[in-house]
Amino acid sequence: MATNHDKLSPPMSRSSVVYEKILTAIIRGEYVVDRKLPTEAQLSATYAVSRPTIREVLARLKEDNLVVSRRGSGSYVTTRPDFTVLQFAKISSISDIQRCFEFRKDLEGGAAKYAAARRTTAQLDTIDKASKSLRKAIELGSIATAEDFSFHLAIAESTNNHYYPTVLKSLRENIQKGMDITRTLTLQASERRLATVQSEHDAVVDAIIEGNGERAREAMTDHLENARGRMFEGA
């Protein structure tokens, strides 16, 4: 029986289905790092889709820094994501989370820019408290997903444009799923990576405090792009 979620979820496009299959093959080591992928014609035959669909898939894999094109040679695998990623989400979820990060860069980059220009003293205090709560949770070894979301929401609310926090709240489940994965992987990594993540948050806060909208936007988009990349860092 179909669930409500199944009824609401749109059917996956052919390119999304093939993207998942190739990503799975890369994670499992079936397509090897620094080795050439099969040609477009071969991939088209293997996955029973058109070559334009394969080109669309390869473009997405390039955006996710998983493959690179070499002129006159073809496409090569550049990164094999850590197999532990699959412990936290299905491939379909990982693909969706990547697209969510892509959307968040524009949404939250804009929010940070307007927050820098419009935040009140009280809102700035809320952002600062959220940042400190996140830092403390990290120091205690917590995954801190709730604290991380609260930090981003505080910035969205400081735009004084209700559309920003409304959209962010509507995406809470998707966003927190991505946070669960990236923050868990970060906790399993080095202290240096933990410090890097915190410094990215600090850069956003500093720019908002200074009222520098462009710098705040850049710091936020850099942070989200880096977070997306950390999910796909190689094994």
Results as ranks from 00 to 15, higher is better:
69 S>Q: 11
130 A>H: 02
222 D>V: 07
137 A>M: 02
217 R>C: 05
216 A>W: 00
203 A>E: 08
5 H>I: 15
218 E>S: 14
65 N>M: 12
6 D>F: 06
200 E>V: 03
234 G>N: 13
166 T>M: 12
100 C>S: 13
214 E>I: 00
30 E>Y: 08
145 T>S: 12
235 A>Q: 08
37 L>G: 09
21 K>A: 15
204 V>R: 02
47 Y>R: 10
91 I>G: 05
33 V>H: 03
218 E>K: 15
48 A>C: 08
50 S>P: 03
32 V>R: 15
180 D>T: 14
143 I>A: 10
24 T>K: 14
166 T>W: 06
163 Y>N: 09
211 G>M: 01
176 Q>K: 13
205 V>Q: 01
25 A>Y: 04
113 K>S: 11
13 S>P: 00
139 E>Q: 13
12 M>I: 05
157 E>Y: 00
65 N>T: 10
86 L>P: 07
110 G>A: 05
58 L>P: 03
173 E>R: 13
146 A>K: 12
37 L>I: 09
59 A>S: 13
86 L>R: 06
140 L>W: 07
213 G>A: 06
183 R>P: 02
127 I>S: 06
165 P>G: 03
158 S>R: 04
122 A>R: 12
87 Q>G: 07
75 S>N: 13
17 V>L: 14
58 L>G: 04
113 K>P: 00
91 I>P: 02
99 R>M: 09
62 K>C: 09
154 A>G: 05
102 E>C: 05
103 F>C: 02
220 M>W: 05
18 V>T: 12
24 T>H: 13
134 L>W: 07
36 K>A: 14
136 K>A: 14
26 I>S: 10
127 I>K: 05
16 S>D: 15
104 R>D: 14
211 G>K: 03
143 I>R: 13
227 A>K: 01
162 H>N: 08
35 R>L: 12
45 A>D: 14
38 P>V: 01
129 K>I: 08
162 H>G: 00
228 R>W: 05
18 V>I: 15
84 T>D: 12
92 S>I: 05
96 D>N: 08
112 A>E: 05
234 G>E: 12
144 A>G: 05
30 E>D: 15
9 S>D: 06
23 L>I: 11
56 E>C: 05
73 S>Q: 14
45 A>I: 04
110 G>C: 04
123 Q>V: 03
16 S>C: 00
143 I>Y: 06
141 G>P: 10
56 E>F: 00
103 F>E: 10
55 R>K: 15
39 T>I: 06
88 F>G: 06
98 Q>C: 11
195 A>W: 03
170 S>F: 05
72 G>D: 02
80 R>L: 03
14 R>S: 13
77 V>W: 05
82 D>V: 04
176 Q>A: 00
98 Q>I: 02
160 N>E: 11
109 G>F: 01
80 R>I: 04
79 T>G: 05
11 P>H: 03
151 F>H: 09
197 V>Y: 07
113 K>Q: 13
108 E>G: 08
100 C>N: 12
170 S>V: 01
133 S>Y: 04
98 Q>W: 03
44 S>A: 12
152 H>M: 04
183 R>Y: 12
19 Y>Q: 10
